[in-house]
Each structure stands twice: as structure tokens, then as C-alpha cells.
Design a protein around this nucleic acid. Structure first.
Lengths: 117, 117
DNA sequence: GGATTACTTAGCTGCATGGCTAAGTTTGAT
DNA sequence: ATCAAACTTAGCCATGCAGCTAAGTAATCC
């Protein structure tokens, strides 16, 4: 369905950088050009552009050329595989804890009731 | 409150590796020793251990020595900062889309009603 | 048309990461 | 006491990543 879907590797790697997370956080509020995004970052523009490119490669943003400016905007859907994976692991983990709770609860009930036979 | 809380950098970096995600997914089902975790991974044990160590450094797992074995278990809470960050960005992004919807809806209503004055 | 803006390309550097082998060390089994 | 299992340490290597400067190109502005 999606044109391409970058791996969790690519996704998490893209999110592992403060600069890139900043960019994303800014774009969550709305589109911006590269120079606008760059403002406030103490970093040479080419280095900064690399980060933008990596976000694009990860499918987290899309960019288009408008005159001499490159406009970037966020693709929020791209986050879902990451969220899903996280929720899944958390679910399994919680499930285990709950089952452990049940187990302990049963032990306690057994003790209160005393041995039956 | 937490003993230490690793940065989002550390967290997302730890999640950016398939081997490490595998380990985590396995541990979500319950504790295991290093050798148990290692089984099925075509990789030398020392290399594998490095991954375990990185997960531990990220606070995603805890390990303790039991005799000659090292037992690992998942610390599911450690995932929450990552989940929170993701949800926050998604929220902002969705919010923007919704406001845009409202805007379009208003335009349409204006058109249907016709200009008032 | 010439200057300025906004990237873009190219090429370099230092350091971190992910992998390996070989050689310990500690603990458990016999 | 010896042997095997389960790590653990040490040291090496190739690649990738984040940063830089310098120089180029394309669109606007004056």
C-alpha cells in the first residue's frame, strides 16, 4: 500500500539523533524550508542537510522544491511501525507481569483457604 | 525517582539494531541467560554480548549473575520515554491536520451559506 | 546583467559501531 | 583434581556516521 516502507532499523536510527528529533518536532507544527529549520542549529548547512536527507530516507518527512527553497513536511504515518513495535513489546511484557500477579494472587488465596485435601 | 534515565539518544540507538530488538522481543516473554539468548544468532558470543551490554546501558534490560550464568530480564518501563516522545509528535502532527480539516470545513460552510453582507 | 540567496556537490577527517579471534576466569559437574 | 560450560577481556579491523570547508548551481532581487 505504501510506496515504500523503511525498516525499523532505518526508522529508529533516524530518531536516534537530537538534531533529527528537533527537526521532526519542528515539522510536527507545520512545513518549513531547510534554511528555516537550520536557524538556531550551530552546524554547517551541508551537515544539517544530511540530517534532513536521512529523515526523508526514513520516510519521516517529504520534501519538494519551491523555487530555490526546499520545503519539508512531516509524514506522521511513518511513525506507526515504530509505535506498533514498541506497544507490542510492552504488551507482551505487561502480559507477563499480569500473569505473574495472578500467580501470586492464587498462591495467597490457596494459603487463605488452606490445603483442600 | 529512577536510578538513572538514559537519553532518548541512547534509547533509540539501542532499538535501532535487529539483534537488539530480537533480544528484547525474546525477553518480553521472560528472563533468559546470555547463552540462551545467543542460541540461533549466527554471531560470535563476544559480539553478541556487546549488544546485551548496550541494552543494559540503555536501561532496557537488567542482568545479574547466577552462578556462572548471567540472567537477563526486560525493564519494560524503560520504553515509556520513547513511546511518550513518539506520541507527542504524533499528537502535534494530528492536531495540525485536524485544524486544517476545520479550516477546510469552514471554507465549505462559508461557501454554502453564501456571503452574508 | 550582476549580486544575493538558498541550497547542492565533492571531498576530507576523526570517532563510534559492529564484527572477529584468541586467550583468560569463574563455576559446576564428575 | 580435572574438565567443560558460560561468560569475560583484550585487541584488531572495516565500515559508517557526524561534522567540516570549499566550490558549484539555480532562482530571485535590484
Amino acid at each position: 500500500m505504501a510506496k515504500f516502507d523503511p525498516s525499523l532499523d532505518t526508522l529508529f536510527t533516524a530518531l536516534a539523533e537530537p538534531t533529527r528529533r528537533d527537526i521532526l518536532a519542528r515539522l510536527a507544527r507545520g512545513p518549513a524550508s531547510v534554511t528555516e529549520l537550520h536557524a538556531g542549529h550551530a552546524m554547517a548547512l551541508p551537515s544539517f542537510l544530511d540530517h534532513v536527507r536521512k529523515l526523508e530516507a526514513a520516510g519521516l518527512i517529504a520534501t519538494r522544491k519551491e523555487g530555490r527553497r526546499r520545503i519539508c513536511e512531516m509524514k506522521g504515518e511513518a511513525l506507526t511501525p515504530a509505535v506498533h513495535w514498541l506497544e507490542e513489546q510492552r504488551g507482551l511484557w505487561q502480559g507477563r507481569l499480569d500473569r505473574f500477579d495472578d500467580y501470586v494472587l492464587n498462591l495467597m488465596k490457596e494459603r487463605d483457604n488452606g490445603p483442600r485435601s
